[in-house]
Structure formats: C-alpha cells, structure tokens
Design a protein around this nucleic acid. Structure first.
Length: 102
DNA sequence: GCCTTGACCCGCG
DNA sequence: TCGCGGGCCAAGG
C-alpha cells in the first residue's frame, strides 16, 4: 500500500508530519531532509499550506528554522500551546526545547 | 518552455 | 533573533 512516490512530495511530507509527536515541532529543513529533499524545504511549506485541504495532518507542529510560525496563521500558536508547547513570542516557539528529533 | 512566486535555509554582521 | 543577500527546487501562469 506504499507506492512511495504516490502522487508527489505531498504524500512524503504529510507522512513525516504525521509522525511528529505531540508537544514537539519540526522545521521545514528537518522534514525536507527526511524526505530526501533538503534543498527543497520551500516545497514542504508550499505543500503544507495545502495540507489543510488534505486534512488530518498536524501541520501546526511545523515551523521554520528560527522557530517562527506560519504568517497569517495565528491559530497555529494556540494549537501548539494546547499541546504544551510554550511560545517565546506571539510567533516563536522554543526550538531548543521542542524541536523534534527523529 | 520561460518567468514569477513561495508557511524556506544558510552564512554573515 | 533580525536583516540582507544568494541559492535551491517545484508549481502555476
């Protein structure tokens, strides 16, 4: 049921995102590397923006290398707080504590 | 088939 | 952590 490159990067990205445990956050670069596209971190973000459309994936646990949350998406901050992730600022999480390590 | 855009990353200061 | 500049790849127009 694997089919690996099922349709495109979306499946791989969503798969990794779905493995992120609660109370943790992962960076786009981290995910990009896990799917074998370290250079392509931007694609992760682009696909993740559509992840809402796909549904069921904790895209709110994905932040950038600086721990900044997605612009125009304040709800992400609340979602993280609900899982126990303390934010340093309105749009920043404490990576040194919550950055997910595989 | 080129050009622009994108929830980015890295190094430097 | 932020700002600037350069780079990488993919999708849409």
């Amino acid at each position: 049921m694997k089919r690996v490159l099922d349709e495109d990067l979306a499946y791989e990205i969503l798969s990794v995102v779905g493995e992120i445990p609660e109370g943790c956050v992962a960076t786009y670069g981290q995910i990009a590397k896990l799917i074998g596209r370290e250079k392509n971190a931007r694609l992760v973000g682009k696909v993740l923006s559509r992840a809402e459309y796909y549904g069921k994936y904790p895209c709110h646990r994905v932040v950038n290398h600086a721990g900044r949350l997605a612009p125009g998406w304040n709800e992400q901050a609340d979602l993280l707080r609900e899982e126990g992730v303390f934010l340093k600022d309105e749009n920043h999480v404490d990576l040194k504590k919550f950055q997910w390590e595989d």
